[in-house]
Each structure stands twice: as C-alpha cells, then as structure tokens.
Write a protein that binds this DNA or RNA. Structure first.
Lengths: 163, 163
DNA sequence: TCTAGAATATTTCAACTCAAATATTTCTTG
DNA sequence: CAAGAAATATTTGAGTTGAAATATTCTAGA
C-alpha cells in the first residue's frame, strides 16, 4: 500500500516496475533462507556448519592462516572467525599456534582430523547449486552470474566498509 | 595449495575454466553480507532491525496478523517471529491480542507508534536495490530477475519444507 | 629511546535464525 | 463422546553475525 512510486513527474522515465523490485528482494530473501536451512541440515548430518566448513576448506586450500586472513577469505568479520575457530578447535579439527615472528598473529592449522574432513568434504552449499546448474545451458549460467554481478556491484558501490 | 591448477609441472597452463559456480556462491555470500551490514546500520540509525522493519511493514500493509502469517510473509520460521515480536512489543510498536474465536491464535497489531514508524518507514533494504535498479535499463533488470529466478527455483526444488 | 598509533586477536553484547520440545486449543474419527 | 492428530504459539539451545571495547604486540617518528 505504499512503496509504489510508479509514475514520476517526468512521465517518460523508464523505471523498474515495483513488482520486479519486490520480486528481486523476495528472491534474495529466499536465497538467504535456503542457505540458512542448508547449514542446519549440514550440521545435523555432518556435525559441521556451513561457516565451519568454509573455514576448513579455506585452510585446506591455503595452508595455515591467521584469523584475519580467514575472515577475508570467507567474507566475515574477524570477531566472527574467533567463534568459528573456537568451535572447530573444540572438535579437534584445527589448532591455534603462535609461530610467527610477529607475536600478534596466531596461525590456525588443520589437525589430521580436520584435513581428513576437508578432503572428503561433505557437500558444501555449492553442491546444490552445482547440481542445479548442470541442467542449465551455459547461457543461462552466464546470465545468473551477470545478474548477481550487477546486484552485488550495485550494493557494493554504497560504502561497504571492509573492516 | 590446491584448486589453483594454473601451473602444472609441465608449465602447461590448464587455464582453470572460469569457475562460474564459485563465482555464484561468492556473490551470494556477498549479497548476504551486504544485508547483514545493512541491518546493523539500520538498527543503529533507527533502532529497528531489518527483520523488525519487515515485520512492521507486513502489519502495515495487511492489518493485524497472527504470528504464523507474519512468518510466511517475511519468510522466516515462526519461532523466529516470536523473538522479533517480543522485541517490537518491548519497544511499544506492536501488541499481542487474543481476539480470535480460535483461542490458539494471537493477533499482532501495530500500536500508534508502530503505525507511525511504518508510515515514514526508514529505508528498507529495498531502497538500495531500488536506487541501483533505477540506473539500469529495463533489460538488465529482467535479467537479474531471471537469474535469481533460476537460482531460487533450483534451490527450491530440493525439499524446502515450508513448515 | 619512548611514545603514540597501527595491527591482531579476543571478549562482550544484542540480534537473528532454525530445530526440537512443549503447551494449548481445535479438529477428526472411531 | 473420547482419544489421537493437527494447528498455533512459545521456549530452549546452539550457531552465526557484526559493532564496540579491550588486550597485546609491533612500528614509526620526535
């Protein structure tokens, strides 16, 4: 009952119809919920959440890393990483080692168990998308990338302080 | 240390095919973080989070609603709604009333303050997207919708229990 | 040198999110 | 009608998330 600014004083302005915008917002929320539900499911089946899995994979692919680097790789603030690493450490999947000359940095390493888990990684969120994408013609895939690209770029332009 | 297959032992470059899937996942994460940061900012400026604002707007646009309906509208499980409504009630923006013949349902209504806030609603997440979309040709907007459509549909196909 | 400021990690805090369990109330079916 | 099933809301618990404050450790400049 509000929000519909469809006709401007200019008359001739081509404007994204409000329903399209609504649809986009709706779908983004849908995407987010899908992720939410997926991580719960993952955690139930494999005792690792999506965030934790991302962290493990980042370490597996890059070797030991300090928290700040992990934060950048998995796109999360570093205070969030602390919690994730805490839980991974409790499960014996990673360890914190202070082995840098710079005594501020604490490197996080995979344990043997962590490496093993990363190796036969339970299907990360990707899997569903991968499976879905397999059935689409390349063109459609490109279109999705393009669309997301525009969206993220659009949101990024407004100041996203990077910490 | 893996995954970047760019140089094999021969020096022959097997150009990692543009990993579109990774890009998509990355961008989805980006979208999610943008939302996360946005809600914090909103809360700081207006003392209402995005979830709370969505709830208020749902009530403003539809009149009093039971929790289950709000859950569907804002796409969240109903146990989540309970918390959101709790906090809105604390701030005096909504009230719970048991006025249905079916004594299980509890209707949630806007208070005067809630209505006022909903009316001059602080820019919901939408605004940024709206602003961004305004500068895009209609075709691009369509493309975004299409792309998201494919994605959500693809994720939806796998059982998303709707509660 | 030593001191102010940067960088790193953590703690604390509030909010969100969902699943599972629980309590109430209503409905259905034998 | 009574018992079990379904619907509605809530509670509880674990996890994620980021801001702000704090503690440590470096670094650069007077």
């Amino acid at each position: 009952m509000l929000n519909h600014i469809e006709s401007t004083s200019q008359g001739m302005l081509i404007e994204a119809p409000p329903d399209l915008v609504k649809k986009i917002v709706y779908q983004i929320r849908r995407l987010m919920q899908a992720g939410e539900l997926y991580t719960k499911e993952l955690n139930k089946k494999y005792l690792v959440t999506a965030a934790q899995l991302n962290c493990l994979l980042a370490l597996y692919e890059n070797g030991p890393l300090p928290a700040s680097q992990i934060a950048k790789l998995i796109m999360v603030k570093s205070s969030t990483v602390t919690g994730i690493v805490d839980r991974l450490e409790l499960k014996g999947l990673v360890t914190r080692v202070r082995n840098s000359p710079d005594r501020r940095v604490i490197n996080i390493e995979l344990t043997e168990a962590g490496r093993k888990l990363a190796e036969n990684a339970p299907p990360p969120i990707q899997q569903r998308i991968v499976d879905g994408l397999k059935r689409l013609p390349r063109n459609d895939v490109e279109q999705i990338v393009q669309g997301l690209n525009m969206l993220t770029h659009m949101l990024e332009v407004q100041d996203l302080p990077v910490e």
